[in-house]
Design a protein around this nucleic acid. Structure first.
Length: 438
RNA sequence: GGAGAGAUGGGUGAGUGGCCGAUACCAGCAGUUUGCUAAACUGCCGUACCUCUAAAGGGUACCGAGGGUUCGAAUCCCUCUCUCUCCGCCA
């Protein structure tokens, strides 16, 4: 969430940022925040003074008791009662004000970076670059959900949605044979590339508690998107971002330990409540999918260089997979709640004839760090010795299902016998051990 | 699932009603001295909010969380959460 002090000291900047996001009633909300904050600071001051007085009175009470000064005790007692009333009043006041302020702050999204374009929807996103040739497929090329039929063991489907329905439900496919092997190949390929780029691999829990959900901003507003085990009060992770970033909750990082670069493979679970239609067919949108995630913790002055580096890392993967892609800079209206700047990477799906989002890399600046209380101690500067909030970033590198969909669709070809086969990208052959799906 | 123990500052670990924001040791930082794969000594060494300032300073809170008793709580009472150990089960 946004920092209170930032809001009150930079009202105009905050408002300008919220306007770019088309945040409704920005002025009224921010003024309310500032107003509540002012009341809180006044009440806090009154409360602290009352407490300080009580402390002194209490000591006088003690010494008078020991001196046997009965008359003095009476006077002290009435002073104590007056201060207790005052204390109680402002404590009640603060108990009322503080949740109000926090609830309000939870509703305010992060401020967009200056390079974020204005706009309301995905149509207003800025295409930063396009790379690669759009493939021209043979007559009768199929979208992946048709293509997969018959490519599994013994003529079954390579990715079996029916079987998944049986044991779990819609959106939980079963990958079998080469389908399972290509998944494992991609995970290993992505992790190896992350390691080469200097990331440290972690295997976090794939369930998280409530505090972790709040730390990265999934709670309180995106509750309905996560699976929840009521008996144990645990959420299935929607992305590895949550457990990995929360490793650093309530941590003061030593200056010398920065930057922190972590990577991890996890399954991800999303309820995707409310989505429907053609765009969710096949692998396009699942309740469970696999993803390799990058998480970085950076000093403020380095975070945007880090974001560019992550973007290039993801692009390199797509180039190695020989997939045509484009990079989008999300506009204010399409950007996630907690992000300050997001690049989306989209891969061209030839048979579906549209772009599929396969990665999203974001800089959250201090928005998550503020909730996480993730700080570092500044070593050399005017404010040396003080703690300062860090910047958090993350990105998918990569999410598997749509990559697989694109590989299947873009690489299909007709064999000499006139049958459809699918070529495995060269870079994955050594990982999966076969060159074609046939 | 059953039984028991515990939660204190980066770590270990004292502290059972006021002299405790907290002893001691270790780790860390700065310095002195000797001199050399290091030792000794001295000082510093938590976080947050508020206030003030050029800087220093001042106030308050925090001993797992929340409530209660009391003029006064790390310390007494209640509730909750978490961790550990043993038994059971088990990849």
């Amino acid at each position: 969430m946004l920092q209170k002090t930032f809001n009150r000291e930079n009202r105009e900047l905050t408002l300008a940022g919220l306007r770019k996001r088309n945040f409704p009633n920005a002025e009224a909300v921010i003024d309310e925040v500032i107003s509540i904050d002012t009341s809180i600071r006044y009440s806090q001051d009154q409360r602290d003074q009352a407490r300080a007085n009580l402390k002194q009175l209490s000591n006088r009470f003690h010494t008078s008791t020991r001196a046997g000064d009965i008359a003095g005790l009476q006077g002290i007692k009435s002073e104590i009662e007056a201060q207790q009333l005052r204390l109680k009043f402002y404590e009640v006041e603060l108990d009322r004000l503080e949740p109000n302020l926090n609830n309000l702050l939870y509703t305010i999204p992060n401020l967009p970076h200056s390079s974020v374009p204005a706009g309301r929807s995905a149509d207003d996103n800025e295409v930063v670059l396009e790379h690669g040739e759009i493939p021209v497929l043979h007559e009768g090329a199929k979208p992946h959900w048709e293509l997969i039929q018959g490519f599994g063991p013994n003529g079954t489907a390579l990715i079996d949605f029916e079987l998944g329905n049986k044991i779990a439900g819609a959106g939980f496919p079963v990958y079998r044979g080469k389908g399972a092997r290509i998944q494992r190949a991609m995970i290993n390929f992505f992790l190896d590339r992350a390691l080469e780029a200097g990331y440290m691999e972690v295997q976090p829990p794939i369930v998280i508690n409530e505090a972790s959900g709040f730390g990265t901003g999934q709670l309180p507003d995106k509750e309905g998107q996560m699976y929840y085990a009521t008996e144990d009060k645990l959420y299935l992770i929607p992305t590895a971002e949550v457990p990995i970033t929360n490793l650093y909750r309530d941590v003061i990082v030593a200056d010398g330990d920065l930057p922190i670069k972590n990577t991890g493979y996890t399954p991800c679970f999303r309820r995707e409540a409310g989505s429907w239609g053609a765009h969710v067919r096949g692998l396009n949108r699942l309740h469970q999918f696999d993803k390799v995630e990058l998480v970085r913790i950076e000093k403020p002055e380095n975070s945007y260089a880090a974001l560019e580096e992550m973007s290039l890392h993801v692009q390199k993967l797509l180039q190695e997979l020989e997939l045509p892609y484009r990079v989008l800079r999300l506009c204010g209206g399409d950007m996630g709640f907690t992000s300050a700047l997001t690049y989306d990477m989209e891969v061209w799906s030839a048979a579906q004839g549209r772009w599929l989002e396969v990665s999203s890399v974001s800089n959250f600046e201090t928005y998550q760090a503020n909730r996480l209380k993730l700080r570092y101690r500044v070593e050399r500067s005017a404010v040396a010795g003080k703690t300062q909030l860090l910047h958090t970033l993350n990105g998918s590198a990569l999410a598997l299902p749509r990559i697989l969909a694109s590989i299947l669709e873009n690489n299909q070809f007709l064999t000499e016998e006139g049958k459809i086969a699918i070529r495995v990208p060269k870079v994955l052959v050594s990982y999966c051990g076969f060159e074609v799906f046939d």
